[in-house]
Design a protein around this nucleic acid. Structure first.
Length: 280
DNA sequence: CGGCAAACCTGCGAGC
DNA sequence: TGCTCGCAGGTTTGCC
């Protein structure tokens, strides 16, 4: 599910209800997700106040008054949803339930259990194995064409795979890589190194525009994703190519009945969609 | 080291 | 209706 815009949207929904509140109750309903929960995690969090909640790449970081920090990843199907009162028995995939001192209930639900929630010390966040190797934030000022070029240089792998690599740039997933390559007019098949330079000049603003538009739309809801409020995102209605095999390319006037329209291919086990006429 | 396929786990839609 | 297959927003592991 969640790429940078979805995680950002979830954080913006959670922060006003969690920051400054005390976690009156922390319930773990299984031993862990993709990795085990940190031993003693519920006890360490409960009774403590949340001091900050922010996003890094696709991770949610929740800092506590005693110096603890929770690192949360939503995997493919994870949701963090706020409700105001208990909705009966917990659902089958409700794995973590936080209750604040003012009665908000935050449920971490994850059907596929590819998600993660672990605890560390806030002072150790930058060196934590989950966060240490991450590349630049694509919406930050230091994500420049020069920086991206340097990270793509000498890479023989396709640009599609390079942009999915979280050490190259943090937070992009399949949807937004596919859409950004289309907006930049760059074929997903080109080698990463060949995109350094002029290609990166196009790609950096394309990535920024796509991510900002998606955040403004509350993310993309395909299957599992919902905002913290439970509302759907609606950026999926703005996809130019993602999931649109055989349909007309919005960037050229060719007839899909003649050209075949948008095409799908598989690269490193992930689907790519692209317009061979617009993306050289 | 670099790059790719497979694995992790569940649910859903398509097709028979 | 019900089964099987393929596919899904991510990351890690293991193999060449």
């Amino acid at each position: 599910m969640p790429e940078l815009p979805e995680v950002e949207t979830v954080c913006r929904g959670l922060a006003p209800r969690l920051v400054g509140r005390r976690l009156a109750r922390v319930e773990l309903r299984r031993q862990g997700l993709r990795v085990p929960f940190t031993p003693g995690m519920a006890e360490r969090l409960s009774g403590r106040s949340v001091t900050a909640l922010w996003r890094r790449a696709k991770y949610i970081v929740m800092c506590m008054e005693d110096g603890a920090a929770a690192i949360i990843h939503l995997g493919m199907s994870g949701r963090m949803v706020i409700t105001e009162s208990p909705a009966g028995a917990p659902g089958r995939h409700d794995h973590v339930i936080l209750t604040t001192d003012d009665g908000a209930i935050v449920t971490f639900n994850d059907a596929r259990r590819f998600g993660v929630m672990v605890l560390c010390e806030e002072r150790d966040l930058t060196t934590h194995p989950l966060l240490a190797g991450l590349g630049p934030e694509p919406l930050s000022d230091d994500f420049t064409p020069a920086l991206l070029s340097a990270r793509l240089a000498r890479k023989i792998t396709p640009i599609k795979a390079a942009l999915l690599d979280q050490t190259v740039v943090a937070g992009l997933g399949n949807i937004y890589v596919v859409e950004a390559l289309f907006q930049a007019g760059i074929s997903p098949l080109r080698s990463a190194a060949s995109v350094a330079g002029a290609g990166a000049e196009l790609l950096v603003p394309a990535i920024r525009r796509v991510l900002q538009a998606a955040i403004a739309a509350g993310g993309s809801s395909l299957r599992d994703y919902v905002q913290a409020s439970g509302e759907l995102g609606y950026f999926q209605h703005s996809f130019a190519v993602y999931g649109r095999e055989g349909l007309a390319c919005p960037g050229c006037s060719c007839d899909p009945a003649v050209t075949g329209g948008i095409e799908r291919l598989v690269q490193s086990n992930r689907s790519s969609w692209w317009c061979p006429r617009k993306q050289g």
